[in-house]
Design a protein around this nucleic acid. Structure first.
Length: 414
RNA sequence: GGAGGGGUGCCGGAGCGGCCAAUCGGAGCAGACUGUAAAUCUGCCGACCUAAGGUCUACGUAGGUUCGAAUCCUACCCUCUCCA
């Protein structure tokens, strides 16, 4: 157990990438006490795909772990049946036990890319909820009032707009709160949108005679659109398990205005450097692209390793920036004679479809018309063109395929 | 139990008998430009057809009325709100 020693590291833990801590003093005290803390983190089996937005909190967990504290990951197999009401009023379909299990597995694979598995305890809600009876539910719910729940922002809004709030949804925060009791959490982590839920856990613990958990809220990461919080349903996310080149590229595509917040929340760039970067960005003394490259590489390194990150960087430089053809291109074997037209020309639009480069022929024709298709660096002006086995077809900037004639497999020279 | 809204393309959301493959916004794709897969601008954005034209699918489901329906009628399914 490493006691927190310097004020400096304490500052870093409690200030950098933190939205709010309730209560900060108490948490600092706990950290100094040398007690091994139980850090609660919920896993939602209905949404098993993690993205960079989740990474913010996970990195924090990791930092706590490095001081010897223990993460308790709760698989929300019961709450998954309700679905977090934070969004619309759509009740999600109940997940089967198998689905929950499969999702939890995927989730954990991603989770442990960042969080230390050795210092994590995994608990399933069903451990305590399977024998939870009606009387338990009543006694749990009698500890809260409707007014109390209506304070919650989205409930409040919906209530005033006359939109429905189901009882099950009301139950959701209660169950989540009880989780804290069940595992005797010392600190619970979440995004700022979870504030209400986490506070409820605190209250419940207290009313049941446990010492209340501290609430650790991290800011919500803005998604690649530069506007809304990163979320899967808004499709503005960068997934943790995406291929390294994609992660790198997507990071490169975030709006410049997001650079500093990404650096702050997703990397360990020292605060002093951060300030410097911020300043040089403001004064245009640095090309934002260079900073983004650094950021992208850092993130890929965390999710994979340094070598992979370098490869991704290299790929970006060559393929995206210099528009070179990548080394590894998927190959497609086709019978050229199937596409033969006349005068040694082939119907490329059909080849694009057969090769899986494009979904439909209409689309292929459109792309050709837009000048987006080229063969061996020669832009197509119509759907017909000559073709030799081994030609590289390029669609748009990033789709490549090498087309090989099945029929000339045997090396017959023409 | 009563009254009243809705169900449209990936999403949001118009249209309410022909001009609708369906306004608009977002997403996506492409082109130009660039400091980048930022920003900006432009175009595309159901499928099929040897194709500035044509055909077929499509507006909850099934029928019907019309020369003609996403638009009207009937039934059904689903969903929401309000009153009790």
């Amino acid at each position: 157990m490493t006691k927190i020693t310097s004020d400096h590291s304490l500052q870093r833990l409690l200030k950098r990438g933190v939205a709010e801590i309730i209560t900060e003093d108490k948490l600092a005290e706990l950290l100094k006490s040398g007690k091994r803390l139980r850090l609660k983190e919920g896993l939602d089996p209905s949404a098993p795909d993690l993205h960079l937005g989740h990474m913010v909190a996970l990195r924090k967990l990791r930092q706590f772990q490095e001081l010897g504290h223990k993460v308790v990951l709760i698989v929300g197999d019961w709450t998954a049946r309700i679905g977090d009401p934070s969004g619309m009023s759509i009740m999600r379909p109940m997940l089967s036990a198998e689905e929950v299990e499969a999702n939890a597995k995927t989730y954990m694979e991603q989770f442990f890319k960042i969080v230390d598995k050795e210092k994590t305890e995994v608990r399933w809600q069903s451990e305590w909820y399977n024998q939870f009876g009606l009387s338990d539910i009543i006694s749990l719910s009698s500890r809260f009032t409707v007014a109390q729940l209506l304070v919650r922002d989205d409930f409040n809004q919906r209530y005033h707009q006359g939109k429905p709030i189901s009882i099950a949804e009301i139950l959701y925060p209660l169950l989540q709160a009880y989780d804290s009791v069940a595992i005797k959490a010392d600190v619970e982590f979440g995004g700022t949108d979870q504030k209400f839920n986490l506070l409820l856990g605190r209250e419940l613990q207290e009313s049941l005679g446990q010492s209340p958990q501290q609430v650790f809220l991290v800011p919500l990461l803005v998604g690649t659109d530069g506007q809304h919080k990163m979320s899967k349903s808004l499709k503005n996310y960068i997934g943790i398990t995406e291929p390294p080149e994609d992660i790198y590229g997507k990071v490169m595509s975030i709006p410049d205005s997001l650079i500093t917040s990404y650096l702050e929340l997703l990397t360990d760039t020292p605060d002093s450097d951060l300030e410097e970067i911020k300043e040089s960005l403001e004064h245009n003394t640095v090309n934002p692209m260079e900073i983004k490259k650094m950021l992208a590489k850092d993130i890929v390194t965390q999710l994979y390793d340094k070598k992979v990150a370098e490869k991704a960087a290299d790929y970006f430089l060559r393929v995206v920036q210099k528009k070179e053809i990548p080394q590894a291109i998927p190959e497609f074997y086709l019978k050229f004679s199937d596409f033969y037209q006349d005068n040694g020309r082939y119907d490329i639009s059909r080849i694009l479809v057969s090769g899986g480069l494009v979904k439909s022929r209409s689309q292929a024709l459109r792309l050709i018309k837009e000048g987006a298709v080229s063969i061996d660096d020669a832009k197509l002006i119509g759907p017909l063109a000559s073709l030799t086995s081994g030609s590289v077809i390029k669609v748009g900037k990033l789709r490549f395929a090498k087309i090989i004639n099945k029929e000339s497999e045997g090396e017959e020279n023409e």
